[in-house]
Structures are given as C-alpha cells and as structure tokens.
Amino acid sequence: MSEPMHDLAAAYALHALDDLERARFEHHVETCPECAEEVAQMAETAAALAATVAEEPPAAMRGRVLAAIESVPQEGAAPAPSIEEAPAVRRVVTPVWSWIAVAAVLAVAVLSWTALRSTDTVEDVLAAPDAVRSAAVATDDGAGRFASATVVHSAELGQAVLIVDGLAAVGDDRTYEAWVIDATSVSPAGLFVPDEDGAARIQIEGTVGPGVIVAVTEETAGGADTPQGAVLFTAEVDA
C-alpha cells in the first residue's frame, strides 16, 4: 500500500477526507478489523464532540418531522445481492461493514442532491440518486502495486464510473484497460492512464448492472480485445 491507512480513522470519522480518500479508506476498512474498530470508537468521540454544541431546533420542526414520518416508508433490511458466477475472474465477495455502507449511501444521496447541475457523465453517475458504490478488491500482481478502486453504478442512468487511486504509472507504450465481465462475456470497457497521483475516473463503456464484475488489466498501448495482462483488481457491482 502506498501509504499507511491506519492513521485515517480519525479523519474519516471527522468527515475530513475527500471523496477519493474516503472511497479508498472504506475499501481498506473492509479488510481491516482494527481500523473498523477504531472508526467506531472515533465516531463515538465525534458524537460526544457534537453534543458540546447541542442547540434546540425551532419548535415547529418537531411537528413537521413527526407529521412527515407518517408518510415516509422505512427501508427494509438490505437484501442480499443476487450474483451469478462469472467464470473468467474469481468472484470476490467483500464483507460489507454495513455501518460504513449506510454512511456511504447517505453520502452518495447527499452528493446527488447537491450536484444536480453537472452535465458531465462521470459527475452525473456519481451524483445519481440511485448511485451504488462497490469497492474493488486488489490482486497482487507481483509488482508490489496496490490500487484502490470503486465502481459507482446508476441503474437509472444505465452508466457506471470507475474511480481508481494509488495506481502505478505506466510507460508510453502501455495502458490500463477496464473490462466488463458478466456471466457469458468479457468486454473491453475503456482505456485509461492515471494522473501523477495514480488517480483516474472513467466512464465505463458497455452494460453494467448488479452482479457484473468490472476488472482492470495492464495492456499495450491501444488496448486489447480480450485481456492479455493479469487482472489487477476487480469490483463486483452491488445491487
């Protein structure tokens, strides 16, 4: 990993990470019980900090909220995503730390509500009310590279975006290529080169839906029709 993640729990709980840092840390937390534990404790501390600035809201708010809940349905328990086996790539099911997932879902919801004016497809997907984020799982390619990546999918827009961070630079004659993998096919989904910080955001070409796997390989410049390089990481699109 390009930097220690363990020192980000406080910043995460304080909401002092930007979107990319947050996605990266959430990816890390899924496989780091120590960090998950630390985030939980930091959240308790942050709540105590919030309590020091408690202030009664206007009295009228109470009546409005209590009236509103009568017509607001509650979420059911999160359904288990139905996933079909994809033969080409090992399917990776990441344990979802639901507490963070709720925060992430809310963050996406808020993002969607504040960024409606964007015309960029990438931004539209990130801001979509129904956007679902799926963290990628990295594969050790033997070169010591470690990337974190998130796929954000909007069923309503029929589009998905891949957000990558911490990816090593490639030479001029090389490129990264994204792939969309479903039960029956492996399709090229776009070429990209990360910026100097190893970050990239690309619109995924092709049809993406729940259960589909987005993978990334390194290829020769110009890309390939079928993956030639090793899979660096995969993300399974959540329902």
Binding site: H15, A43, E44, A46, A47, A50, W99, L106, V110
Partner: peptide, 14 residues
C-alpha cells in the same frame, strides 16, 4: 456496531 447517538450524529454531520 456502535451507539445510537454515534449513528445519528454521523448522519447529521455527514
């Protein structure tokens, strides 16, 4: 996973 107050406060602050 944590207390109710932390859960609610996290949403509010976020």
């Amino acid at each position: 996973r944590g207390s109710a107050s932390a859960w609610i406060t996290t949403i509010a602050h976020r």
